[in-house]
Nucleic acid binder design. Structure first.
Lengths: 216, 216, 216, 216
DNA sequence: ACAAGCGGGACTACCCGTTGTT
DNA sequence: AACAACGGGTAGTCCCGCTTGT
């Protein structure tokens, strides 16, 4: 192997990811990426024939990491609880931790950054984003079906839409956090989802009424 | 009326809004706006001293329209139902109609477009977005408190977070719709919220498992 | 009319023509044209949306001037002689003067410059060049037919090929002049053509043999 | 033989020659040559210290091949005919075949490609081109003198200019073929030259008008 | 001999904003 | 008040050639 270019390549991707999440893709100039990564035009275009290729590589890497996070959270939830409903509740809790931490680092989802410049993104990259988001829905829907089999839902629900609510809330929370500037916002939203799941699959609804209350 | 420059101004804003929602603000060039609006450089810079001023004007107009929509939906909900819980449920339903229709026209929220280029947006514009989003939370939270007073929530909940879930779901849905390409997605998410509200404020939980319909 | 941009535009075209003939089109950078024309990037791209458009404009102007030269030379030849053969001989002589003068200014034909980067030139520009060169053939062929009607050619000849020999020799001479550095070269070649025409349409071949000779 | 680098070198030269004739030298990037030759940066700069060196090598090889072609055509003409005039006529005919075939492969003369970017070519390369073209003139002029000795020319002619007409017509024809897209064009021009030579050195001009064929 | 990462500069294209002119 | 011409700067792309490694 000649000089290992992957180091430089990774530095470029890291710098670009930060900048894209902060400013958007179009507003992130190649020069800015180069400066942040400490490399040069030549080096950049050696690794990425065009800015569009950088975008695709960015999304590819992000999607791969995203899939790993999903797997890990599910796995941990499955280890921490045996009951499918409990696993789901734990999963949502773990996710809240994860996302809140991520928001403190970089308050934004790379996928959303690209979605908000949708018309300028090539089809391949869009497909990558789509399948990444669908993966979350698929995995969570499966868990929901297991939970629904054990605990019949108290109202008729579209389990797919419910599964997609996880990603929807997280994506929405990213926007809200950017607008309101409060990183704890996600947790609040995911807590609502946990309450919903508990109420929806509650086998003994009447027993609950003992705990009253509402926060300010 | 003598020659009214506001016609031209409106045409520029309309064209710009469409382009910004499609491509983002940074990727929307003044020239492109001019072409789409059918005007010229001179005309543009007569109405907007700089591109940034266009951005602010865009957000201002969008915020004003947004406040009107919020008012109207709440008012209609209040006319259609007397019970605060029912008003909320109606409101969420009306909102689903509204947003789904908006998504077919332009699948995106202007606020989110600017949030995703946050670092580049001036403080005044950001403040405008923030207060717009907080307004929804404020109004809905008030309704929730009324509902909670009438129907003690079956689990402890943060009513503010619950109120914010409306905007969070809508913003998240915009991202998801762009990623998945399915405009009906919002409705599915807001239906979940309705179910959650029903379960949360249900005065007769035990009776539910047989009749899944909403109580009067 | 606002500020008269045609002055600036003409300056750009003049500078570009000189540079393209000297270095070729690809090797002529827009920056070099700008410097030579004393204008700026903005000014340049206002008049020519792309470098390719400059190329086309260059060829268009050159073709128009070329057609004028052809007309004038033919007209002058027709005034200086009545006999079609004599007109042709005069025409070739006038052309020699014209081309030799042109070569001292800029030793090259713009058409040829573009032909030598043929694969990079757009179809419209190529068509323009083609029809310009065909025009010379057409006009000269017509004259040749008149001459041939008066003086039957002494050998069978393709009058079209003979007509095209004028442009072929001029184009070839441009290459040779660039290679050998001798601007008088064209005259020598066109003199040959005159001799050929004289011999070909000579009504009294036998009488000629009295003048022997050959130069070193 | 051990590893022979000359194979790779030749592949580079071949690829470069094709590209230069198609696009010109300046417009031919080293990267494009590398791709077409199937080699790499390292390989290229091993054989050619700079792009300019490639240019010179290209011209050197082309000049050498050109000299061989000239020798062969003259030699064949000398074998096919004994009379110097006939040898010339045969030579021009053979040349027409040769050039027409060459034009179908690559419609252009490498020398002319460089001449049309004259200002950018180094002196050594230019000298090479000049002497190559002079060589044709020298050899043909010698033949013409032999012919003129045997058959006194019917009009006073500059034999050097006449000798140079061969290269001039061929170079001019390359331009015309590129412009008009008709590879048979050269033949037509060289046929004119043959007619001219026949008429010029015709010992029995009067007899011609009835028998247009060539005399033995 | 060849392979590939890399440096930095140059090129085309475009962008935002200004200036005159009608 | 509308508009073309213009100014200067920046964007993305590519290019040549050097260096480091095998």
């Amino acid at each position: 192997v000649p000089r290992d270019g992957s180091v430089n390549r990774t530095r470029i991707l890291d710098a670009a990811e930060t900048l894209v999440i902060a400013h958007g893709f179009a507003a992130t100039s190649v020069d800015a990426v180069i400066d942040a990564a400490g490399t040069t035009k030549g080096g950049f275009f050696h690794h990425f024939p065009s800015k569009g290729d950088l975008g695709r590589a960015l999304v590819e890497r992000y999607a791969a990491e995203d899939a790993v996070v999903l797997d890990e959270l599910l796995e941990r939830a499955e280890r921490l609880a045996r009951d499918p409903l409990q696993q789901l509740l734990v999963f949502v809790g773990l996710l809240a931790d994860e996302v809140e931490a991520a928001m403190r680092v970089a308050p934004g989802c790379l996928f959303a950054s690209f979605c908000y410049e949708r018309e300028l993104v090539d089809a391949e990259t869009r497909a990558l984003i789509e399948s990444s988001l669908r993966l979350w829905g698929d995995r969570i829907e499966a868990k929901l079906q297991a939970a629904a089999a054990a605990y019949p839902p108290r109202v008729e629900v579209d389990l797919r839409a419910l599964a997609d609510q996880v990603t929807t809330l997280v994506e929405g929370a990213y926007v809200m956090v950017r607008a309101l500037g409060d990183a704890t916002f996600v947790r609040g939203q995911l807590e609502q989802l946990r309450s919903y799941l508990e109420l929806l699959f509650d086998p003994h609804p009447a027993a609950r009424s003992s705990s009253p209350a509402a926060a300010a």
